[in-house]
């Protein structure tokens, strides 16, 4: 979801969330949807509410059709990912006509935040790094990022393996999450399982200390996702991520090689996609502009 610094007009929540107590808090507004933090069934169970408000500029019939289609398609993709064991937030409830979906709350930092933090720490010098007691210095820092890049590659590979392309892979759409420890209360789940496995709800108090090499990558915001088994679509997915990396983290661009390396080893057929990526890069956006 794209984050904007333009303060939008407050938009009304769809029912029944108008009566939720405490009221949902707005986390971010993208172009399409608003993301709120609220709770599911009981106040102790945090969850994310994605609301696609009606677009006044669109013809109401077209607007209804698009909103319905997008909510359903995103939910189906998430459910499929979840069934196949890809780390994504689970779907809790939705109303396609009203344009909202409730998902599990993913507690953690975005990969973007983690990388930016790591970069600024790297700039400050090697001396202050608490984790590198052995005096590995900058190399240690790079190791942390490299482990993280490997995780990203494997997470994307896992998603592609099951036939899902994300459509908007950026470092803002990946969370680095530490699984809740055994002591934390088992979160409520919609599929009957009660153990912490596969759930990202309520992490506990050590989130700020999550380092690059710890935790697990959870992919979020499947608003533009599609189900596809074609190498071309997967290669384009990687290309989008590559370009997002280049523009968001120019200094970590070298790290992207590690993403691709890990991706290449993550599933059968990944190597073919990587070869296809070379073609996509060459084509890039250099198509003729003649219509």
């Amino acid at each position: 979801m794209e984050i904007t610094n333009v303060s939008p007009l407050p938009l009304p929540l769809p029912p029944p969330f108008t009566h939720t107590h405490p009221a949902p808090t707005l986390i971010t507004q993208g172009a399409e949807a608003l993301l709120y933090r609220t709770h599911f069934l009981r106040p102790a169970h945090p969850c994310a509410l994605k609301h696609r408000p009606a677009k006044a500029y669109r013809h109401p019939t077209l607007d209804k059709r698009l909103t319905r289609h997008r909510i359903l398609s995103e939910a189906r993709t998430l459910v499929k990912c979840r069934r196949e064991g890809v780390s994504v937030p689970g779907v809790l409830a939705l109303d396609a006509e009203a344009g909202w979906m409730l998902m599990e709350w993913v507690e953690g930092r975005t990969v973007k935040e983690v990388v930016v933090a790591a970069e600024s720490k790297g700039k400050k010098g090697e001396g202050e790094q608490e984790r590198n007691g052995e005096g590995k210095g900058e190399a240690g820092e790079d190791d942390g990022l490299r482990v993280l890049m490997g995780k990203i590659g494997r997470a994307v590979g896992r998603m592609h393996e099951v036939g899902v392309v994300h459509g908007d892979l950026t470092t803002s759409n990946m969370m680095l999450v530490v699984r809740p420890s055994q002591q934390s209360p088992p979160p409520l789940r919609n599929d009957g399982r009660t153990d912490g496995e596969g759930s990202y709800v309520g992490g506990g108090g050590r989130l700020e200390e999550v380092e690059e090499e710890e935790g697990e990558i959870v992919l979020i915001d499947f608003g533009l996702a599609a189900q596809s088994l074609q190498d071309e679509d997967k290669a384009v997915d990687l290309y989008v991520l590559e370009r997002a990396f280049g523009s968001t983290h120019p200094e970590a661009e070298a790290g992207f090689r590690e993403v691709l390396r890990a991706y290449g080893e993550s599933y059968r057929g990944a190597k073919v996609v990587l070869r296809r990526l070379e073609d996509v890069r060459l084509r890039g956006r250099k198509r003729s502009m003649l219509g």
């Binding site: 794209e2 984050i3 904007t4 333009v6 507004q29 993208g30 172009a31 399409e32 677009k55 500029y57 669109r58």
Partner: peptide, 10 residues
């Protein structure tokens, strides 16, 4: 309008 809005948000 949709792609323009997305670019504005971006």
């Amino acid at each position: 309008v949709e792609i323009t809005e997305r670019a504005m948000a971006h």
